[in-house]
Amino acid sequence: MSIVDNEDCAALAKQKMTFLSDGSLQSDRVVALEMEKLKACGIDDYDVRFFGTIDALSSLLKKMTKEKRLEFLTYGDLITNIKRMKETENFQKLKSLTQISQQLAERQANITTWSKDVQLFNELGASETVKDKVYRYLREHPENTLTYQELLTKLQK
């Protein structure tokens, strides 16, 4: 993080989260935009997607409002609670699985890379049936241009 980011984060951390009480909290989009502000404080794109919903924010607020009234909560309080949650083993596992799933979804399904790709399926806990269907398809269609996500969708039909 650069000095500018640290200064930006320190200034943001002191600000009250007025969007919680001024009536502007109307949708997940509003929450996502508020979470975007936290990137200067080490919140990454995955975190923005994960915490950037009303449901996720509501869960955090339940914990936060036990210690402080809603109208007094600052972005610093939010950052602290997000960082605490990010340190948990469950969050780390979920983030890892999500990232592997996204990597696999975007990867082109290819018989020549199957031996490496199947390891990702294994990490995600895919069943032998699913892996067998994918492998059979790849053997029968070695010239396909589908991503694994597209292939899995096709195999479900």
Rank of each mutant, 00 (worst) to 15 (best):
I3E: 14
V4Y: 09
D5L: 00
D5E: 09
N6Y: 13
D8F: 11
C9S: 08
C9D: 01
A10C: 11
A10V: 11
A10F: 04
A11H: 02
Q15M: 01
K16L: 00
K16T: 06
M17K: 02
T18S: 10
T18G: 01
L20K: 04
G23D: 07
S24Q: 12
Q26D: 08
Q26M: 05
S27P: 05
S27N: 11
R29S: 15
R29N: 13
V30M: 11
V31G: 04
A32T: 09
L33Q: 09
E34C: 01
E34G: 07
M35N: 04
K37T: 00
K39A: 02
C41K: 01
G42C: 04
D44S: 08
Y46C: 00
Y46R: 04
D47T: 07
F51H: 08
I54F: 08
A56D: 12
A56H: 06
L57H: 00
S58A: 14
S59R: 06
L60T: 09
L61D: 03
K62Y: 09
K66G: 12
E67M: 13
L70E: 03
L70Q: 02
L70V: 05
E71G: 07
L78M: 11
L78D: 05
I79E: 01
N81K: 09
I82M: 12
R84Y: 08
K86P: 01
K86C: 04
N90L: 14
N90S: 14
Q92F: 13
K93I: 14
L94F: 12
K95L: 07
S96V: 14
L97P: 11
L97T: 06
T98C: 15
I100F: 06
I100G: 03
S101Y: 15
L104H: 03
L104T: 03
A105M: 15
A105C: 14
A105H: 15
E106L: 15
E106I: 14
R107W: 09
A109C: 02
N110Y: 02
N110P: 00
I111N: 08
I111P: 03
T112G: 08
T113W: 13
T113N: 12
T113L: 13
W114N: 11
S115H: 07
D117L: 04
V118R: 03
V118N: 05
V118Y: 01
L120Y: 01
F121S: 04
F121C: 06
N122D: 11
N122T: 11
N122H: 02
E123S: 10
L124I: 01
L124A: 10
G125Y: 01
G125I: 06
S127V: 04
E128D: 08
T129L: 05
V130L: 15
K131A: 07
D132R: 15
K133D: 15
V134I: 10
R136G: 02
Y137K: 07
L138P: 01
R139A: 02
E140H: 06
E140G: 05
E140I: 11
P142L: 07
E143H: 08
N144I: 09
N144L: 10
N144H: 10
T145Y: 12
T145Q: 11
L146I: 13
T147F: 03
T147M: 03
Y148W: 04
Q149G: 15
T153Y: 07
K154W: 09
K157P: 09
K157R: 12
